[in-house]
């Protein structure tokens, strides 16, 4: 065995790259060669020394920094998915519900820190104009490193829900229409991208964004006798830990 072959065998042994036959060959080599034993000792020592390095912790904001810089291709339109899906709701019903929702400008609460969508020029999606509505539900909340609000307005043609959260770190979130008696009819996003929309179940989920703003057109579900504002639920979490859980509160005017 020449020097190069000897070094390869010894080094592969130190690095755990040998199969059974290779390990037997190494054992025989170490038993007979002083040079092999010396090199084996040196490589093992260096490996051991490198193994004592302290692990380095990335900065807390690394994930947010990375996420903030990345643009993904525009998401597929969810309503197209819906149209293609085998959803039990008839296509005509979905379209009729979407057409029945109209959007009004300027019905939003006046808050400086964050604002829900107030200008349809920002919207990506399709919400038709609505008449002047009345705010019937609201939830303004704070969580570790962020804040948000959810507003619900009632219009002649249906309901509009505006959702906004803004934080220093990305959060996982879920908005659930639950037993509110409302169902999703249309959706338009302003900032951030919901990861999934469950049209039939009335759930919208997302994660990975520090800012998310969207508006949804809602209609009273067929068969629902009433609309329960506090049936709309919101969950926020990060890395499996709950940050906020709450329900929309009715607004009496």
């Amino acid at each position: 065995m020449n020097d190069e072959a000897m070094i390869d065998l010894v080094q592969a042994g130190v690095d755990g790259e040998l199969d059974d036959a290779g390990r037997e060959a190494l054992d025989r080599l170490l038993a007979t060669s002083e040079d092999a034993r010396r090199i084996h000792g040196e490589l093992t020592a260096v490996s051991h020394w490198l193994g004592q390095a302290e692990p380095v912790e990335p900065p807390d904001d690394l994930h947010a920094r990375i996420m903030a810089g990345i643009e993904l291709p525009a998401p597929r339109r969810r309503w197209l998915d819906f149209l293609r899906s085998d959803a039990a709701l008839p296509l005509g019903y979905g379209l009729a519900a979407a057409l029945g929702v109209v959007v009004t400008l300027g019905v939003l609460g006046q808050r400086d820190a964050i604002t829900v969508p107030g200008d349809t020029r920002d919207l990506v999606g399709t919400l038709a104009p609505m008449d002047q509505g009345a705010q019937v539900g609201a939830s303004r909340f704070e969580y570790a490193g962020g804040q948000g609000e959810v507003l619900l307005t009632r219009h002649a043609e249906g309901y509009r829900l505006d959702f906004a959260i803004r934080g220093e770190m990305p959060v996982d979130w879920r908005l659930d229409l639950g037993d509110s008696g409302l169902e999703l009819a249309s959706l338009a996003t302003v900032e951030g991208t919901p990861a999934a929309v469950d049209w039939r179940g009335g759930g919208i989920t997302g994660g990975g964004d520090t800012v998310i703003r969207f508006s949804a057109g809602l209609s009273q579900a067929e068969g629902a006798n009433e609309v329960r504002i506090n049936g709309i639920e919101l969950d926020l979490g990060r890395a499996g830990e709950s940050l906020y859980q709450g329900r929309l509160a009715p607004v009496n005017r």
Binding site: H63, M67, I70, L72, P73, A74, P75, R76, P170, D172, G192, T193, A195, A196, T205, G206, G207, G208, D209
Partner: peptide, 8 residues
């Protein structure tokens, strides 16, 4: 497909 949750 533009899924930011998958990106995260």
């Amino acid at each position: 497909n533009g899924d930011r949750q998958a990106l995260g």
